[in-house]
């Protein structure tokens, strides 16, 4: 079993009455691209802030490279690259000043790689950050997070709100990072196609609870999407043992299940295929829905 870069055990965090994270435990294997999915407010950003040491665990424990990120932030953060949804970059700096500033903090900063990324992203070195577009800022943030070749790259919804071209740039950079150097990426998004395309492991948060965690292939192989046709109209969603979600109306119902289900009396299967990540996500987050 590969060594864990991030090990989270029974992590909980409350904000007032709301449980932002509820008894979350997960391990991020070294060299993996770990996708974290969940609806808005599921706790993805809170979890990433705990990994960065920006929040202390109320209960439970977090170890990043075997170290508590709150107790020893310098040793953890020097090995981590972080890009948030809205990069909080100092607008008064120029691109080159930003690169020089970042370089000073990371002994492993690779100036040639940084310059290559700058050119690749089309960033003018003398432009101030405040005049950069949202996409350019995201690229600059990614440059800052990547150019010291961190052991762990943390991306918190990096492509949210960006156009497809910028998004593909970011994805390409992530893939290159992993494929070329075998480092670890922890990546949160609610763009499921993106996660599905890039990740080899995923975890799913729903209302602060970890509802799914494991290798993507295993999860996709485990979940099925079946459509049942009933002989009579169903006014309410039929009770299907083993289903995580039942959606539909009238005589046709679509079921997402994580095991083979037994045929229900009065129905027959008209479609059976591997569930997509989107199906699984909507199934788990959405539960039972009647479209009638």
């Amino acid at each position: 079993m590969p060594e864990s870069v991030v090990a989270i055990t029974n992590l909980s965090r409350r904000f007032g009455a709301k449980a932002a994270l509820n008894d979350v435990s997960l391990d991020v294997p070294r060299g993996s691209v770990f996708g974290l999915v969940g609806e808005n407010g599921a706790g993805k950003s809170t979890l990433i802030k705990h990994i960065l040491g920006l929040w202390r665990a109320e209960t439970g424990a977090i170890r990043v490279f075997g170290v508590d990120p709150v107790a020893d932030p310098v040793s953890v953060l020097s090995r981590v690259g972080y890009l948030s949804e809205q990069p909080d970059l100092p607008e008064w700096m120029t691109v080159i000043e930003f690169m020089r500033y970042m370089q000073a903090f990371y002994p492993k900063w690779d100036p040639l790689y940084a310059e290559e990324l700058r050119r690749q992203f089309g960033l003018d070195r003398d432009k101030r950050i405040r005049v950069l577009s949202k996409g350019q800022r995201a690229k600059l943030g990614l440059l800052g997070a990547q150019a010291h070749r961190p052991d762990l790259l943390l991306l918190d919804e990096p492509s949210s709100g960006l156009d497809p071209i910028v998004r593909s740039d970011i994805l390409a950079a992530v893939i290159r990072t992993v494929s070329e150097e075998g480092r670890t990426v922890f990546f949160s998004s609610h763009l499921l196609e993106e996660i599905e395309r890039v990740s080899d492991h995923i975890a799913m948060l729903h209302q602060g609870k970890l509802v799914l965690c494991g290798p993507l292939d295993e999860i996709k192989a485990q979940y099925r999407r079946m459509t049942l046709r009933f002989e009579t109209q169903q006014s309410t969603a039929p009770a299907v043992p083993g289903a995580v979600s039942v959606r539909g109306a009238g005589r046709e119902w679509t079921i997402i299940c994580n095991q083979a289900i037994k045929p229900i009396d009065g129905s027959h299967v008209i479609d059976d295929q591997a569930a997509s990540l989107n199906d699984i996500f909507i199934g788990i987050a959405g539960g039972v829905h009647s479209l009638a």
Binding site: L52, L54, V74, V76, L77, Y82, D88, F105
Partner: peptide
């Protein structure tokens, strides 16, 4: 500011 908080500096 998160820009400063995530820098490896004590």
């Amino acid at each position: 500011p998160s820009f400063v908080a995530v820098r490896p500096i004590s």
